[in-house]
Design a protein around this nucleic acid. Structure first.
Lengths: 387, 387
DNA sequence: TTGAAAGCGATACCAA
DNA sequence: TTGGTATCGCTTTCAA
């Protein structure tokens, strides 16, 4: 088996050209090309002859030659950090699925949160003649990043995904993103309507690199505003690095999931003992929600009977974790379609709205719960206002 | 913002060629090319001049032209079903990471378990001049699949990942895979050594499409063979389709994770009541393990105190789920390296061995556990044999 | 309808 | 060392 590659027996010329096809079909090179491109100005007879020749010989056209000559690639570049990250993986599939319905194909590159790799990938996209680029940015500031200007120079439309706060992007770049504020608002209102009066917000520790925090908090406040007596407990999480571990943190800081679980467990203990009366929590993503549920269960709490959990997230991600979550969900397909429309139809993207999906992790507050033993109010459930 | 694309103001020629560079650097086209390719036969002065010209103009070479002329692409194709699947996502990152350490780049395509898309992707790889292809196959039989023969015809080395049983592949194709049997053996021995005497094996329902079943069962039997009195309870799982839901099943059959969770819960109830004495289970993958743990907890069992769970899986996947699992782990990087060596160095791949990593989901059997109330043996823990 | 020829943007050979 | 030129495989225009 191995020898096959080393010896390469003299079968036939490995690379066939359209010349060979024309020769075999006994026609001119140009005619063969026309058949290949589905041109109407070839006779059916000729077409059949050429097609047969191609089939017989196992002819495969050379994309590089075609692209070079035609100036078109029908390829869209997608640049994201990792694939083995619930969020990005889900988006990747959605982008692929959406693009597959068009004439285009996706060229996926991963920057692994390494700036240099982002630069290289962008350049690669330009070199390869992408007709559009979807970028999940590695940086928050593109002030002196030369390569991103190449997209402008070479007239390659680009959508940058992610929350607000990324600055110094070229003017020609579109921005697409999720409406995080509305997501938080939905969740807070949902929990409040179930009778929860003290809701914990587990947010990543604020840092200059952390994007979207502002939107999230604003949304939560909006949600609270329409309910009397509901309070938010904002808890900033730090775990190893100064944030909720992302795939990046796991790699960079060598944090293990066990460390993170322990951290969440401690956090749970703390906010259930100190901040009395918390009966529900909203997490920043699904992973943290699952961790939280595990921690709660280890602490003797039942979910959702004693404590409700909800989170922001993408639809179709529930098959990953260990517990069906109540979520404010953003449709990955909507996000993908939005980005694609921007690239292909030059439509300015709008914020993708969330929708609330209630699953097993949230339930009406229970007054005998261990979470709030000292607040035996009995009017919570009916005090709530309408959305 | 939108207008920028539509109007394309007459700045400069969008696409610069090496001709333009040569003109600006006041030299011959050939010299500029040599600088681009780091050839040593250009004077430092000339090199500097050309480099500056390129920099100033924002020149980006055309990959298609280079590939066409040089006949090389330094690209490797990776074809897999989905990205948003714990297993494949993890492998994708590993492949990317491994390839990035070479001169090559990865071209990722997804077939979504659609045979047609597999065919198109393979053809796309041939058209694009991939120098190697890693294939996570869509089919189990390649008898009449023409496109896979193109890889042979065009001398593109190919590694097919996956368990044995895939047939009618060209002789020139390498096969790479994990040593599933040894993984099962490790897990069974581990659980047996903890004193478990009745171990459930949660396997996908046998079907012609299900690969690797044989290896798994064989391995488990090997593990049992070295322990006296240990028994396996093989449980074939069916959920909607006739198998453990994969990403494919979720899409095809519209199974929701809640359905699956309910299914696993029922299964748990059944095998804990009927097959008395089961105190541990081995699942087919992490997702099922997490589901099982959730079901057990809902049934009032503590994990691992009352019941141990272990599974086969890839390393570095623990950050997904809600519970740290004891696993027979295969290193994604090893798998990737193995495949890469096959493509680049033409080394026949060998089975990638697993290693046992004990985490929170397994523990010594506890005799007061609800799982086996009627078998009060007290010599289990010391009866075990050496590995 | 068909065929001949120019040219896409690079590489690489060979003469200067 | 440098410069000119043929060539890679295809698309496309234009003349026959």
């Amino acid at each position: 088996m191995r020898e096959m590659f080393l010896m390469t027996p003299a079968l036939e010329k490995p690379r066939l050209s359209i010349r060979d096809v024309a020769k075999r079909a006994n026609c001119a090179l140009g005619s063969a090309s026309k058949v290949l491109n589905g041109s109407l100005e070839v006779s059916p007879a000729m077409k059949k002859r050429v097609l047969k020749a191609m089939e017989d010989m196992g002819y495969v056209p050379n994309r590089h030659a075609r692209n070079l000559k035609s100036g078109r690639t029908y390829r869209l570049g997608l640049l994201m950090p990792f694939a083995s990250d619930l969020y990005y993986a889900t988006l990747l599939d959605a982008f692929n699925e959406t693009v597959m319905e068009t004439n285009y194909r996706l060229d996926v590159q991963l920057h692994r949160w390494i700036e240099k790799e982002e630069d290289v990938a962008i350049r690669y996209f330009v070199e390869s003649g992408m007709e559009g680029v979807i970028l999940h940015p590695c940086r928050t500031n593109y002030e002196n990043v030369a390569n991103i200007r190449l997209l402008e120079q070479y007239r390659i439309p680009c959508v940058v995904m992610g929350p607000q706060g990324i600055c110094n992007l070229p003017d020609t770049v579109f921005r697409g993103m999720q409406d995080l504020a509305s997501g938080m608002e939905l969740l807070v209102k949902h929990l409040a309507s179930l009778g929860h009066r003290k809701i914990a917000l587990l947010l990543p520790a604020s840092s200059s690199k952390q994007l979207g925090m502002h939107e999230r908090l604003d949304g939560a406040k909006r949600g609270v505003a329409s309910y009397q007596g509901v309070k938010l407990e904002v808890i900033y999480m730090r775990a190893g690095s100064d944030n909720v571990p992302s795939q990046k943190d796991f790699k960079t800081y060598g944090i293990s999931i066990t460390d993170y679980q322990d951290y969440v467990s401690k956090l749970v203990k703390k906010f259930l003992s100190q901040k009395k009366g918390v009966t529900a929590a909203i997490t920043v993503n699904e992973i943290t929600a699952w961790m939280l549920i595990t921690a709660l269960k280890e602490g003797g709490f039942r979910v959702p009977e004693d404590f409700s959990v909800a989170t922001l997230g993408l639809s179709n991600t529930e098959h990953f974790g260990g517990f069906p979550l109540t979520m404010a969900e953003y449709s990955p397909m909507d996000i993908a379609q939005c980005a694609l429309d921007a690239l292909l139809k030059k439509i300015e993207p709008t914020l993708v709205p969330p929708s609330l999906v209630v699953r097993r992790s949230s339930a009406p507050v229970c007054f005998s719960s261990p979470g709030q033993p000292e607040e035996p109010q009995n009017n919570n459930k009916h005090e709530r206002q309408q959305t």
